[in-house]
Structures are given as structure tokens and as C-alpha cells.
Design a protein around this nucleic acid. Structure first.
Lengths: 222, 222
DNA sequence: CTGTTCCTCCAAAGATCACTGGATCATCCC
DNA sequence: GGGATGATCCAGTGATCTTTGGAGGAACAG
């Protein structure tokens, strides 16, 4: 084998990772998997794809070794192959945010106007320790169970309106969800405002929290 | 526009970055650009592509905004759009290295057997400060000029054999080049061994050095 | 203005990829 | 074993991507 061929083979391997990340649907699947393992059918439902297509995309991700599987009965659960994959996904978001002007527009169309206040990670940590704030996790319950901010309470967005009474009045509320491109915390804060509460969003989400090596609680549902 | 469409539009933007990284040739071009700006023709020559194909790939990278251009006379110089792009590329390498078993084989085929000793970044820094080691940069001269390790001397691989006399005997030599997948430092160390010198490689290259926020010298050719 | 250099655009051919519906396979429950 | 569920495999179609040669455009030197 010539050196040129050998060199091509190396870049061919790198490109396997790149190819896995080259489809919007696959990135959406990775986005979901970054929150915890999921069955094929659950992924298909959330990503708005039919099961066959979803399975095909998952096979592509699996061949690039960025996801791994676990079988439980008739279900197959997919998960990210490692933390480095989540970091790679975050880095793509970062580059896109920094260099693609069209993303800003797409973001506003999806998340709505920037009418909610943001809070940084450090402020959240400080005020949770001080106890003068209530942090709510508005993702679906399973994702909360898979890992959440220390001290956070689970208030899935679709239960929030019905469970408003559980939130003490007169205390600042901070909502968070998957990341800066997740609509749940935006909707949650708008809902709380509509009910006269003061509420803000964590600027990013659980993924960035973990990437910053901040502590995460899991399992015991609060 | 429905929420679903808006969400798809966001992932569409992320995928623009992923698509840019989905071709082995484009990754090879990025690998070169990570060392400094280059003209289309120079890139084509080094990557073993014809100019038309190279230009097409560069347009793809440019549309994804991961590279930028600068015109000088009749030449067009391409460069990475930012440090975050270099970090994205490194993260892809990291994920590939960690999860793709085939990469190990491809790597040995390209770089040859693991018969050379490696040195870590910290040891290099320490011994450069102590002055009991000579560090040589075996990349082409232009890349050295674009930025190099503090205290390093430029000994492009193709001049190394002819300039052996300039290297004092009895002092350890450490060679480095672009990164862990760059063949130059491997060849340099083997050449030095063949001439009875003691020589080792820096485990990775200039890119990782910069990513670790270590200082880099530029311009003044030593 | 003319010729040269370097790059980009265009059109065509071949390869690869995404999606779909139907069939098949693995597992579990009864 | 029979039926149900969840996932994968397969074949076909339409779309997209890669590569190539040739034409065209920008900058420059004489």
C-alpha cells in the first residue's frame, strides 16, 4: 500500500465520524440521545420520523460507533457511545452559532422572541446553595431521572400548568431543559409569566452543565 | 411556519457544519489549513487532488463558513474561520481515535510501526526552559513561520539529512510536526536514529499545543 | 491590449444517500 | 405453538454529492 493510500485510509476513518453528523435528522437523534438512552420507537415519535427511517439513521450512527445499543425484551435502547460524542455535538453547535448567520434566524423562528431573561451557571449554583431560588427541570420525567441539576425539582412542561400551586409564590423560579436550542424552558418561563410569577431561564442546559464539569444528581426523583 | 418546520430549520443549520466535515478530502484540506493559510493550488498539490476538485471542496467549506478567503494578486488564500473550527477538527479526531478500531490499523499503515519514543507537552516545556534539549520543527518552512513552539528551530524534513551537522551531538533532540497523524516527525526521528542520534517525538503536534493554551512563537525565523 | 496565471463556474457521468412499504427476525406473553 | 410487539433488512425511486474536462473570469506583467 502506498503512503498516499494509507493517508487516505486515515482520513476515511475521520470522515466516518463526520458523515454520521452530516444529516439534520441524525443530529436531532443525537440531541435526544444526549439526554439519555431511548428506544427506537420513542426516538421516531419525538423526531417525527417513521420507524424504518429512524432505524436506518441509527444504524448509520452505530456503524460510526458514536452510539451503542442495549436490548431489553423486544426493545432496543440506543445511547451515546461516550461523553466525547456529546462534546463533539456541542462543538458543532458552537461553531454553527459562531459562524452561521442563518442560525440566528432559525433560532428565533423556533424558540420565539428573546423575551425571557437568562441566568448563568454560576449564579444558579450560588443561589441554589443560598436556598433563595427554586430550580425546575421542565424536561420529560425520564430525562430528569437520567440526571439533573442538584436541588432541581421535576416539573415536566406538560404538567406545569396543572401543578402551579406546588410552586411557592414570592420565590424566584429558574427553569432549564436540554440546552440553548430546547424550547421547553422558553415555554415554561412564558407560562409562568402569564401567571404572574417571576421566572428566568438557565442560559444553556444540562449538557453544557455537564461539559463544564459541574455536579449532577441522578436517580432519586425529588 | 410550524414548530416542527422551525425545529428542522435549526438542525438543518447544524448539519451544514456536519456536511462540511463528511468528506475525507475536505478533512484533509482542513488538516492542512489548520497549519496556516494556503492557496488553492498549494492545497491541491499537497492533498493530491486536481485544482477543480479542490476548488469545489473549498467552496463547500466556505458555504459552511468554516473557512474564509483572502485574495492576493491572482491567488486566493484559504484559512480556517476560527480557532473553534480547529477544535472541532481535533474533537473529531479524538472521537474517531476512541471509538473506531479500524483507525488504529490505518494509523500504523500510514505512520509505520510504533518504534519511536514519545514525549509529553509538559516535559518538553520543562526541558526547553532548562535548556538541555533541542526542539526541531520538521514541517515545511512556511508552517514554521506561521507559528511554532517556543525555542524550536526549523528543520524541514526534506532538509534534515543535509543539515545534520547543525545539530549538536550529545544533546537530546525532540521533533514535532502537525499532530499525532502527521508522518513528518516519525520520519525525522527514524532518520536521526539511523545517524546514531538520540531523538524522540512530541506525542502530538502544534494544534494540540495551541488547544492546550500553551504559548506559541511566530514570525521571526530562528 | 495581449498573454499568463490562478481560480471558479458549468455540465455530465457515476456513485452514494434518504426515504418508503413490505417482508423478516427476535423476543415475550399466553 | 400462536399471536403481538419492536426493530431490522431489502429493493426501488428520487435526490444529492463527487469528480472531471472545458469554458470563463479576475488580476497582473509586459
Amino acid at each position: 500500500m502506498s503512503r498516499r493510500q494509507a493517508k487516505d485510509a486515515v482520513f476515511e476513518q475521520f470522515a466516518r465520524i463526520g458523515k454520521a453528523l452530516s444529516s439534520p435528522k441524525r443530529l436531532e437523534l443525537l440531541d435526544l440521545l444526549a439526554q439519555g438512552e431511548r428506544s427506537v420507537e420513542a426516538l421516531a415519535r419525538t423526531a417525527n420520523l417513521n420507524v424504518t427511517t429512524t432505524s436506518a439513521h441509527l444504524q448509520a450512527l452505530k456503524q460510526a460507533r458514536v452510539v451503542a445499543t442495549r436490548r431489553v425484551g423486544t426493545k432496543v435502547f440506543y445511547r451515546l457511545a461516550g461523553r466525547d460524542v456529546a462534546e463533539l455535538y456541542l462543538q458543532i453547535q458552537r461553531v454553527a452559532e459562531h459562524h452561521l448567520p442563518d442560525l440566528g434566524e432559525a433560532r428565533v423562528n423556533f424558540l420565539g422572541p428573546d423575551d425571557t431573561d437568562e441566568v448563568g451557571r454560576e449564579e444558579v449554583r450560588r443561589r441554589v446553595r443560598a436556598g433563595d431560588v427554586i430550580v425546575i427541570d421542565v424536561r420529560p420525567e425520564e430525562e430528569f431521572a437520567g440526571g439533573h441539576l442538584p436541588g432541581a425539582k421535576s416539573f415536566p412542561l406538560d404538567q406545569l400548568a396543572a401543578r402551579l400551586a406546588e410552586l411557592p409564590t414570592g420565590v424566584d423560579v429558574i427553569a432549564y431543559c436540554r440546552g440553548p436550542y430546547c424550547v421547553l424552558s422558553y415555554d415554561a418561563v412564558r407560562l409562568l409569566h402569564a401567571h404572574g410569577r417571576t421566572a428566568r431561564r438557565l442560559a444553556d442546559g444540562i449538557l453544557e452543565w455537564q461539559a463544564a464539569d459541574l455536579p449532577v444528581e441522578s436517580a432519586d426523583v425529588a
